[in-house]
Simulated scan of single mutants.
Amino acid sequence: MSFKKLKFVKPEESDFSTTLKERVNHYFNTNNLSKHGNASMILKTMLMLIMFLAPLVILNTGIVSSKLLLFGLYICSGIGMAGVGMAVMHDANHGSYSKNRNVNKYLGYTMNLIGANANVWKIQHNVLHHTYTNIDGLDDDINAPLFLRFSPNAKRYWVHKFQHFYVWIFYGLSTISWITTKDYIRINRYRKMGFFKKENEFRRELFKLTGWKLFYYSFAIVLPLIMIPIAWWIVLLAFCTMHFITGFITSIIFQVAHVIPTTKFPATGESDLIANDWFIHQLETTCNYSPKSKFFSWLIGGLNFQIEHHLFPNICHVHYRKLSKIVKQTAKEYNLPYLTHKTFASAILGHIKMLHQLGRPQLV
């Protein structure tokens, strides 16, 4: 399976992207601001890493003998893991955390520290999802297994009519899949698509992928199984609970920004061209939510401002709230959509509605 690259052809009459980029650059220049992270970003990084690692350190000492404390520590670590993924690793692997490439590189490895793989994720997220948002067959965030349907352009099966009921279980299992099989499946598929094609690159990446996973298993579950004086199956259940919470949180945060009734799902034909400005494509396929909640935005790494993130993934999320005013105003001037749910709850309801619609026969 080769990788079919599509090109976005900017309409001659559209200068939206040019105007928007000029205004965003003007904002940073006039306010003498860096597009990268700041002191609050560093503080958040330390807090998220401590929340993820400190409970595991305590568990590895073997002093925990209470089942309630066992689950509490693993759950705390799971929330920290989600925070590291959304608010630290995400910016670093987009190159927006710091202007120093090495800082981005090493903080990007926090993805490996939580059991996944940064280089595989960059292809899945930075290349495929961000470039071809909501395009079936290319956007890996909507390329779901057979029992889930995230696009009206994907084949429908009878089981999909129930997906709005059972999808939540699979969201919870997503990071368990990630730390076990998903990375291996993806790295093999990406090689067939033309990635990892340098000499011995695939073999080296596969070796590093396995090494990082073994390191993660060692401190996240093997040592606790050895050290904690509680039945092994209870420790394993607590570990799985941690991952279920992490997977549930991260899946919902990302999916409600794209798989909703108001976003578009462009279909591709035989042509390698898409007659649309890439910037306009991002507006049409992405939705913000809960824009007024500062704490919620802080907690999830600014991912409630998905429009700003998709338009400017090279800018750190700490700036998205301010940029949203510029993006919204510019979109309004050009009569373009700027999709927003007032609350996170309404975004989830929209996602449920879309899952239900995608399961109905008339959308085949």
Rank of each mutant, 00 (worst) to 15 (best):
K4Q: 05
K5W: 01
F8T: 07
K10Y: 03
D15A: 02
L20F: 09
K21G: 01
K21N: 11
K21Y: 10
H26I: 05
H26E: 13
N31F: 00
L33P: 11
N38W: 14
T45I: 02
M46K: 10
M48S: 07
L49W: 03
I50G: 07
L53M: 08
A54G: 04
A54L: 10
P55W: 03
L59S: 08
N60S: 12
G62P: 13
K67N: 11
K67H: 05
L69T: 10
F71K: 12
C76E: 12
S77K: 06
M86D: 10
H90V: 12
N93G: 00
S96H: 14
G108V: 10
M111S: 03
I114A: 07
I114K: 00
Q124L: 08
N126H: 00
T131A: 10
Y132G: 08
N143M: 05
P145Q: 09
P145W: 12
F150M: 15
P152Y: 13
P152L: 12
A154M: 02
W158D: 12
V159I: 15
F162V: 02
V167M: 04
T175P: 10
T181C: 04
Y184L: 15
R186Y: 12
R189N: 13
R191T: 06
R191E: 01
K192N: 15
F195T: 05
N200D: 15
N200H: 13
R203K: 12
E205D: 09
K213F: 08
F215P: 02
Y217F: 14
Y217I: 05
F219Y: 12
A220W: 03
I221R: 14
L223W: 04
P229A: 07
I234D: 04
L237S: 15
G247F: 14
F248G: 00
I249C: 01
I252W: 00
V256L: 13
V259L: 02
V259H: 06
I260C: 10
T263L: 15
F265C: 12
T268R: 09
E270L: 12
F279P: 08
E284H: 09
T286W: 01
C287L: 10
P291D: 07
P291T: 07
S297P: 11
I300A: 10
I307T: 11
E308K: 02
H310Q: 06
L311G: 01
F312I: 07
F312V: 03
P313N: 11
H319C: 09
K322Y: 13
L323Y: 03
S324R: 01
Q329S: 05
T330S: 01
A331L: 06
Y334C: 02
L336Q: 08
T343V: 08
S346E: 13
A347L: 04
I348G: 09
M354E: 15
L358P: 09
G359H: 02
P361N: 11
L363W: 11
V364L: 12
